[in-house]
Computed example of a mutant assay.
Amino acid sequence: MATAKVGEALRRLGIGDEATRVYLALLELAPVRLSRIGTAAGLDDTQLAAAYGELVDAGLASAPVDGRDAIAPLPPAAGLQILSRHRAAELDASCVTVAGAFDAFRRQRLAEFKDDLVEVVTGEEIGPRLRQAWDSAREQICQFDSPPYFPIPTATDEALATLARGVTQRVVYSRESLEFPGNLTQSIEPCIAAGEQARVVPSVPVKLVIIDDAYALVSLSIKEVDVHHTMLVVQPCGLFAALVALFEQTWQSALPFHGPPHRPHRLLPADRRLLSLLAGGVSDDDIAKEIGISRRTLFRRVEVLMARLGAATRFQMALQAQRRGWL
């Protein structure tokens, strides 16, 4: 691959110019001593130390014990995951903005909205409208799922029937969905086995169902579902587009959920010990003392483990580690 393209890709991931020059020199010369890399990159000792430290922190290069050690680039998969996650901060901010826009809409505009773009459905009317939504889907259903649930005894059967006729279903479950009594074995796993694409996050901002590009069903908030039994039916408009964007951004950051646990994979004893301490609620300072590393090294190892597991948060890391048999 052309050097210019590699350099541009690294800069887009947030790697500085001097660190990029060092990485390109590594690709050309490694394994080699650090001093020779500095000469090739045209950097003095101070600049070289900072630039190479940036690569080590990003998981892209090995850390030398002393100046006599040869250095080399590391396999980049975990490091690139870390860099990508850091750059995803802007997407997270976008999610907050969209959710805030909907909340402002609810507070300021709902009472005066008089046309057919938004319909308010309450009480016993909710169940039939949900069934109608599943029956009307032709291509795709996108959903945020979380308790409390409106009592529809046939909900799982209707979801399975929809999957059976070829409708794609993408569902983002909250942690509470997995913990709700009987929900995992009686509803979630049967739907995944039938072809549903499922992901999980600690919590979802609203209960939401998007039917094709036709309309969305959305609650005013998680708590208000139970208190007011109120649902909005949103036709294509600016609010509908915002809800679609909110779902897609949340889907991208959610952890894939594949039903029954995977077979255990190889894990170093030190990393297993680290995961066990984290899962036990031990503080970062105490973990660092227990295994004899600095806080900075601890954070770096946690980020590498999160990247290996495809997790964006420590909650997701613990969930995926448990499913893989690492805990």
Rank of each mutant, 00 (worst) to 15 (best):
P190V: 03
A193H: 04
S221Y: 04
S219R: 07
S203L: 09
S174W: 10
L208M: 07
E189F: 00
V200H: 02
Y215L: 04
I210Q: 04
Q186N: 10
R175V: 01
V204M: 12
A194K: 14
V209W: 11
E179D: 12
S174C: 10
R199A: 11
Q186E: 14
I188S: 03
C191G: 13
Y215M: 03
I210Y: 01
A214D: 15
V234Q: 00
K223T: 15
V204S: 06
V200P: 00
K223G: 14
G238S: 14
L208I: 03
I188C: 03
Q235C: 02
Q186R: 13
D213I: 00
I222W: 06
P236Y: 05
K223P: 12
V206Y: 15
G182K: 02
P190D: 10
G195E: 02
R175F: 05
D212K: 00
D212P: 01
V225Y: 10
I192K: 01
S177W: 09
P190H: 06
V225R: 15
M231I: 13
L208P: 06
V206D: 08
Q197Y: 05
H229P: 04
E224Q: 15
V200D: 00
V225N: 09
K223Q: 15
M231W: 15
V200F: 02
E189V: 05
C237T: 12
V234I: 14
G238Y: 08
H229Y: 12
R199F: 00
R175Q: 11
A216I: 00
A193Q: 12
E179L: 14
A198Q: 00
L232H: 10
L208D: 02
T230M: 13
R199T: 01
L208N: 10
P205K: 05
A216T: 00
I211P: 01
I222M: 11
Q235Y: 05
K207T: 05
V209K: 11
S221M: 04
S221V: 07
L178A: 09
V204R: 07
C191A: 15
V227A: 12
L220E: 11
